[in-house]
Nucleic acid binder design. Structure first.
Lengths: 157, 157
DNA sequence: GAGATAATATTTAGGCTTGAAATATTTATG
DNA sequence: CATAAATATTTCAAGCCTAAATATTATCTC
């Protein structure tokens, strides 16, 4: 029971916030759906795979499984399966960590690095195609507001 | 025109658009994750279930399976499973459509309607709690921009 | 009407996701 | 040293999600 009793008739603020969230979700889903379809069609891949490769591309020395799941903000068990499949496809390696036999470092293979570079270029241009029209009219400000929103959300945790 | 707002190197537009998308995705994920956790903890339910109930609550006469999947922007086969479970839990009914033996109308039961009303109130206040701080500083404009973004995205399809 | 095409819903196969429990290893404590 | 606590990862069960295949019913065209 929150201290805000929004059930009063003349209190549209919570409705406005709800609408804001629904709009955010809708825009996000449209973009995500299109990107997922592109990844599937062009590279026979998926968003989660792309996200893992992106993280490993950025951290060249590799990431431990737990670090990977932190960076991606997904559960531990989730990453295991995705990495399993990437290993099977030769894009990623599990390397033992010296001095800690519990941990494994996940790293891109040469092929993984090459493949991702191509995919990342395509991905960037897909996003650009989707957003360029909107962004030409105040996209920078909007982007900054999104950043503020995220910060405001993270403060609450 | 704030095209060269960044550094002297003038980052390409596509990078800015990519950042916009990543910020949108991040904000969306934070909210979604928190809502999902709340639904699970408070009502032993999930987002997809909530979404289905919300759609059926809005369309009192019920929706065909295909209409439901259109409204929710998810695949046909997906809805089948969710509705199966909602039927099993007594929140939803499948009703034959007179004159078309292919189609089924999905409708809330009395219990479904009652349960959802409670959940929707809670959901609205969760969202309000998350967004009220941010929304107090220009949230209305931001919301309108989100709406424009969605329209711009939908024009491209 | 007959046959083709479209609409509707389900099933299937494969992958994604979570939280909880299980396993293995390391570190801290008595 | 022994044992408990903490850390790292995997496994598991359940549900979510998609695209493709299937089955049934409706509609269209000739």
């Amino acid at each position: 029971m929150s201290q805000n009793k929004r059930s009063e008739k003349s209190e549209p603020q919570s409705k406005q916030n709800l609408r804001l969230w629904l709009r955010l979700l809708k825009a996000s889903r449209i973009i995500e759906t299109q990107l997922r379809e592109k990844l599937r069609q062009e590279f026979a891949s998926t968003m989660p795979r792309f996200d893992v490769l992106a993280a490993l591309y950025r951290f060249e020395k590799g990431l431990k499984m737990s670090e990977l799941s932190n960076v991606l903000m997904v559960s531990n068990g989730n990453v295991t399966g995705i990495v399993d499949r990437l290993v099977k496809d030769g894009l990623v390696l599990r390397v033992p960590v010296a001095g800690d036999r519990r941990a494994l470092l996940v790293r891109l293979t040469a092929k993984g690095r090459e493949d991702f570079a191509v995919q990342a270029n395509a991905h960037e241009s897909w996003v650009d195609d989707m957003l360029s029209e909107f962004a030409s009219k105040g996209g920078a400000e909007f982007s900054d507001q999104l950043d503020e929103l995220t910060k405001s959300l993270e403060e609450r945790i």
